[in-house]
């Protein structure tokens, strides 16, 4: 029997949630404790909604797809960044501590502004295909062929859902506010791999060749540990660092 099945239904869970509403001038950050009877198959999505519906209607948190796909619900779950929607309470101890993901502007309680952060990252790293020829893209003609393995390799990195867990787990991001994080470096790795993007290493170097980019990473590997999509972040960052070092040497 799995851990989950053993625990189901038997426990009174205790949720210790870090509360703060910046829209309320009287609000100060505090921990609030709720108890909730555990149900079979209960996820943090189900639990938090029950708390809001029956115990405290002001509780703020974000869910969208509730299926581990959209990346809205990253939070600290017993100190560790993760997606709340697909975390089963049965896999957690009886006392569950929830806090907003660090590194992002707080909207309220467990809701943080990852969207603004990610948009800033995209603008800064120009996370789109750069190709002059796109102006004249002929959409009536056959598409450009691509090796099947190459398409799959790009998708491997494309799977990032910008949930922010890697930023919340990153020592460098906590120290340098402008560090682009594993999420940003992974984007660079993704476009670098893409033959449709005509940028060269010198161009990427200009974007991430400093302390706020690939040389800011202290290789603590927190990012890869917590990535809900199991992206090979550490390998990608290490590889990118070598390429960027080579780029600077080539430039002389």
């Amino acid at each position: 029997m799995t851990e989950a099945a053993k625990n189901a239904g038997a426990r009174e869970l205790e949720f210790a949630i870090l509360r703060h509403n910046p829209a309320d001038p009287d609000s100060v950050p505090r921990e609030q404790v709720f108890t909730l009877h555990e149900a079979a198959g209960m996820t943090l999505f189900i639990a938090l909604n029950e708390l809001r519906q029956h115990q405290d209607a002001s509780l703020q948190f974000d869910f969208v797809c509730r299926a581990g796909i959209c990346g809205s619900c990253g939070m600290l779950i017993n100190g560790r960044p993760g997606l709340a929607c697909r975390t089963l309470t049965a896999d957690l101890p009886r006392r569950i501590q929830l806090a907003p993901l660090p590194g992002f502007e707080l909207i309220g309680d467990l809701s943080v502004n990852t969207g603004k952060w990610m948009r800033g990252m995209s603008e800064r790293l120009e996370t789109w295909v750069h190709d002059q020829a796109l102006e004249q893209l002929d959409i009536d003609a056959l598409e450009q062929p691509m090796e099947p393995e190459q398409a799959e390799a790009i998708y491997e990195l494309e799977r990032c859902i910008e949930c922010g867990c890697c930023v919340g787990a990153c020592g460098s991001a906590m120290m340098h506010e402008d560090f682009v994080g594993a999420v940003g470096l992974n984007q660079i790795a993704r476009f670098r791999l893409d033959p449709r993007d005509k940028r060269e290493d010198a161009d990427y170097y200009a974007l991430v060749g400093d302390e706020s980019g690939v040389f800011g990473c202290m290789t603590l590997l927190g990012c890869e540990d917590v990535c809900p999509k199991d992206l090979p972040l550490a390998t990608q960052i290490a590889f990118l660092r070598r390429r960027m070092t080579a780029a600077v040497i080539a430039r002389g």
């Binding site: 789109w128 295909v129 450009q144 691509m146 398409a151 790009i154 494309e158 893409d194």
Partner: peptide
Amino acid sequence: PKAIRELAGWGVPWNRVA
């Protein structure tokens, strides 16, 4: 077909025929 080709140009890594 035009939509999918446009998206291919813009970067969607569509799975390919082998």
